[in-house]
């Protein structure tokens, strides 16, 4: 039996890639075979797998966190914006000029299915990352709730408190979902907090009631260097490095430090319970 858990967020750049990497790392360190998965990635930062396939940089990093080299199944579709509102589509790690983005009923589902099943056969746990936010009411969105439905994954919603409005963002994201998608949300996390978290108490309680799901924790803002995939996070503050080494080792070392703090802040037992189908 392979278990899975999916991370979605109220906006892009909320830190879900990193949290996914940390969750991968957490279970990898406990002896599980773990793999990251992201149906569709929209990013210009990519990585080349040992067999020459191209995937999103975040999945490569998450894969290293699982103690393995990345493979293209971890990110079956990668869209690279070429300007003028066009994108280059990389499918299974190979550019496909003719490929266009389809809805759920289009040819995308079999691609996702094949990639996911490949990983499922080889792993105990799959940590799935959504793309952007599930609340875009103007888009037909395959990377978030459709993926969760397809692979029957419980969803953890991540809110970014760094720029404020986190309760509004979580509440609004939840409210704009359909009734059946609302039911997939099993918990939420507040990320990038600075200061004393007790100040959030009344807001957290109210949100638990509104979302009918528990808050798994409030994560402190930690600005270590990790490979970012979003151009919006460029030029931000970074630390946690020393000259002279391999930056990949530095990234993983930073991830371990990050996870150390995260384990104090996130109820991992509750998260694992949700992953195993409990409430």
């Amino acid at each position: 039996m392979t278990y899975n858990i999916m991370l979605q967020s109220t906006l892009s750049g909320s830190g879900k890639s990193l949290i996914a990497a940390a969750i991968c790392r957490y279970f990898h360190k406990r002896g599980y075979e773990v793999s990251p998965f992201k149906s569709l990635n929209i990013s210009l930062n990519s990585y080349i797998t040992p067999d020459g396939r191209e995937i999103g940089m975040s999945q490569a990093f998450q894969s290293w966190a699982c103690g393995k080299e990345p493979c293209h199944q971890m990110n079956p579709i990668l869209l690279k914006a070429t300007g003028n509102r066009a994108s280059q589509a990389i499918v299974n790690g190979v550019p496909r000029k003719e490929f266009e983005r389809h809805g759920k009923e289009g040819p995308v589902t079999p691609i996702l299915e094949r990639a996911y099943r490949y990983l499922e056969e080889r792993n105990d746990i799959i940590v799935i990352e959504g793309s952007g936010t599930p609340s875009e009411i103007n888009l037909n969105d395959i990377a978030n709730m459709n993926t969760a439905e397809l692979f029957k994954s419980p969803v953890i919603l991540i809110g970014d408190i760094d720029t404020g409005g986190v309760f509004a963002g979580l509440y609004g994201t939840y409210q704009l979902l359909s009734e059946e998608h609302k039911r997939l949300i099993k918990g939420y996390i507040i990320n990038k907090f600075r200061g004393d978290p007790s100040i959030l108490g009344s807001g957290i309680t109210r949100l638990e009631k509104e979302l009918k799901a528990p808050c798994l924790g409030v994560m402190t803002y930690q600005c270590y260097s990790f490979p970012e995939e979003d151009s919006l996070s460029m030029g931000g503050p970074q630390r946690g490095g020393s000259p002279g080494g391999d930056v990949r080792d530095i990234w993983l070392r930073n991830l371990d430090t990050f996870l150390e703090t995260m384990e104090k802040e996130i109820k991992f037992d509750q998260l694992e319970n949700i992953m195993r189908g409990g409430v």
Partner: peptide, 16 residues
């Protein structure tokens, strides 16, 4: 709207 979620944030900000 740059990071997405614009409608959710509008809705949530007003209605909360």
């Amino acid at each position: 709207i740059e990071r997405g979620g614009a409608f959710a944030y509008l809705y949530g900000t007003v209605r909360i």
